[in-house]
Design a protein around this nucleic acid. Structure first.
Length: 205
DNA sequence: CATGGGATTGACT
DNA sequence: GTCAATCCCATGC
């Protein structure tokens, strides 16, 4: 897709659907652990599946912060989920990182996750934060200059083929095809329908 | 102040 | 396929 080479605040300030697609193929790093993003979902305060739908509260203040910061929250009392805040302070928009292809610090990830299989280390939004060692203390920190960083794809990396479909694990706004992943990746949180075809209502890019 | 519901995972029938 | 674990916080009394 010839996406942006530079990841800066302007990268995250764009439309959240565009950022969600462009983040697939980028690198997330925390300490010596790093992985390549293979699956994302977009959320926006205009639709009820978003935490920001309720407006500005203590919980959502991070979502209504500047683009390029991390929104980390606890899900089901157990898991930390990592998002990248997008658009401007009025949007309450963010991209949820749902799965990574582990690249560096595999043994560190295995120790934190308690599993060996590389395909199971980061194949879910709660799994990848556990593997990277990301927790709620990183909420609100910069993804450009903070402890958790997002980097552009390595130079010469092949163009990513994207598949879009409905978001997972939500009960509202399930008609929106705002989940994006790399076509054919073995590291996604849930496999797509056989043959690499787009899910119902989805689309292949 | 009490209650209830998750953007999930892993164990189990 | 079902279900519990377990914490934050929005909501309502």
């Amino acid at each position: 897709m010839g996406g942006p080479v530079v990841i800066d605040e302007a990268f995250f300030a764009r439309d959240v659907l565009q950022v969600a697609q462009d983040l697939v193929g980028c690198i997330v790093r925390h300490g010596s652990a790093a992985g390549r993003i293979v699956e994302t979902e977009a959320y926006h305060h205009d639709e009820p599946a978003s935490h920001a739908f309720v407006g500005l509260t203590a919980r959502t203040s991070t979502l209504f912060g500047p683009p390029g910061i991390a929104y980390v929250y606890r899900s089901y009392g157990i898991h930390a989920l990592l998002n990248a805040v997008c658009e401007d302070e009025t949007s309450g928009a963010a991209v949820l990182l749902r799965a990574l292809e582990p690249l560096e610090g595999l043994d560190e990830m295995r120790a934190r996750r308690g599993v060996q299989d590389a395909e199971a280390l980061c194949s879910g939004p709660g799994k990848l934060t556990q593997a990277l060692g990301v927790d709620l203390s990183e909420n609100g920190t910069s993804l450009l200059s903070g402890p958790v960083r997002i980097e552009p794809p390595p130079a010469g990396a092949p163009v990513v083929r994207l598949v879009a479909g409905p978001r997972i694990g939500i009960t509202k706004a399930t008609d929106l095809a705002w989940r994006f992943s790399e076509q054919g990746s073995r590291y996604v949180s849930r496999p797509w329908p056989a043959g690499g075809a787009a899910a119902p209502g989805g689309r292949v890019y």
